Computed example of a mutant assay.
Amino acid sequence: MASVQLDRVRKVYDNGQVAVHGASFEIADGELMVLVGPSGCGKSTLLRMIAGLEDISEGDLLIGGKRVNDVQPKDRDIAMVFQSYALYPHMTVAENLAFGLKLRGHPRAEIERRVNAAAETLGMSHMLGKLPREMSGGQRQRVALGRALVREPSVFLLDEPLSNLDAKLRHSVRTEIGRLHRQLRATMVYVTHDQVEAMTLGQRIVVLKEGEIQQIDTPMALYEKPANLFVAGFLGSPAMNVLHGTLQRAEGLRLVLDGGDALPLGQATVADAWLGRRVAMGVRPEHLQPAGIGKPAFEAQVELIEPVGNEVFVNLSHAGQSLVSRVAPQHLPEPGQLLRVTVDGGVLHFFDADSGQRL
């Protein structure tokens, strides 16, 4: 396997559009790195530059310590798995797996060894004689993974490989990819717009917006300490609640909302320099809970209750702002009624109201 290093990599199209603004980061040998962000953020463009399918306008790309800006895709020792399975319909699984190796002139015995090894790794040895039309979507995607495995590359590149699968299959194949990574100790770069995939698969995550890197860190570090409002809102489902107002001390800390209402923040502590400052305050849904007796609280109107089995999402409205609380199954007021809510002041997030950067 090999490391992948990007040093101030930019992509500028002929019309002047900048797709990637100076990306710099390193993917360690054997690491599974996820590139995540909304549509158009530049994540697939970055992956295609690593693959050699897009030219690099500026900067350097190194694979295994070797600069590969001008190296052809076939010579980069990478294998790519696309959103589309792109299987040959008239070929069996074994023939699909072997086809690329035959084109590269590998000996028959070596092809057979690699095909059998990949099939065994993916639990598909009994399917080698099947045609794609005889298989489910999840099985076809495993064949696409197998076609990358037989290459035995230094780096695996996966471009939204689960997008065409239903929810159950996505979970199954996601688990398979995670298992493969642990088994192979392979260097993998995985692109997705799905924050659940990013959080569950990535050892580290690169969060992108409009071609610019917003933050790079482990999944839980991103969740617990987002660098800005974009990262805070993008990672987490339901998304973080964000309220705008001014911080004051009056019988403890409180946030005076733009409309004038004051929210008590319990034992939250902030620097004195933040007092009187207009901020954006973030609170995760699990940290917005029905208030017990004696706790500082505010009243919010219940708009909608969404029971999803082992937890309930309570959609609330307060002072014209929408909020979501994640609670354990319990008796709750009906929609239209009021619920006393308390904020866990120990886990609040504060951002500059203008720049969106974490304070």
Rank of each mutant, 00 (worst) to 15 (best):
R358E: 01
A328P: 06
Y223H: 09
V20P: 00
K225F: 03
L35P: 06
L247E: 01
P161F: 01
M1R: 14
G294M: 00
D29F: 01
M49V: 07
P161W: 07
L131A: 09
K11Q: 03
S163D: 06
L235H: 04
G52S: 11
S237T: 15
M281A: 14
L275H: 12
R104Q: 14
V68D: 03
D194H: 09
T175R: 15
R147G: 11
T200H: 11
D344P: 04
H181I: 11
R48G: 05
H331A: 15
M127Y: 15
N241V: 09
E212G: 04
E311W: 13
R249A: 13
R340E: 15
I111G: 04
R76F: 05
Q248A: 15
Q267P: 02
H181N: 08
D77F: 09
V347P: 00
Q83R: 07
V12H: 05
R113H: 14
A250W: 02
S154D: 15
R204L: 11
G146I: 07
G52F: 05
P89Y: 09
L235M: 12
F230D: 00
M1Y: 11
F230N: 00
P329R: 11
L247F: 10
A19H: 06
E58D: 15
N315I: 06
Y190D: 07
H106I: 06
I213G: 04
T187H: 08
V81P: 01
V93L: 12
T342F: 06
E110C: 05
V256H: 05
T187M: 06
D55T: 15
V312P: 04
R326K: 15
S136P: 01
R182M: 13
T246Y: 01
L122Q: 06
G236N: 08
H181C: 09
G294T: 03
R48Q: 12
M80L: 15
Q195G: 07
G233I: 02
D77P: 06
R179Y: 10
H331V: 14
A98C: 05
S44E: 02
D258S: 13
A109G: 01
S237E: 11
L180D: 02
D75P: 04
E286D: 11
Q83T: 04
R133S: 13
P296T: 11
Y223I: 07
I216F: 13
S355F: 02
G266T: 10
L97D: 01
P89G: 10
H106Q: 13
G309N: 09
S325R: 02
G59R: 06
T175L: 14
G276Y: 08
E286G: 05
E134C: 01
L255M: 12
L162N: 11
V12A: 04
R104W: 03
L6S: 07
M135Q: 07
G30I: 03
V256Y: 02
H171M: 14
L62V: 00
V4N: 09
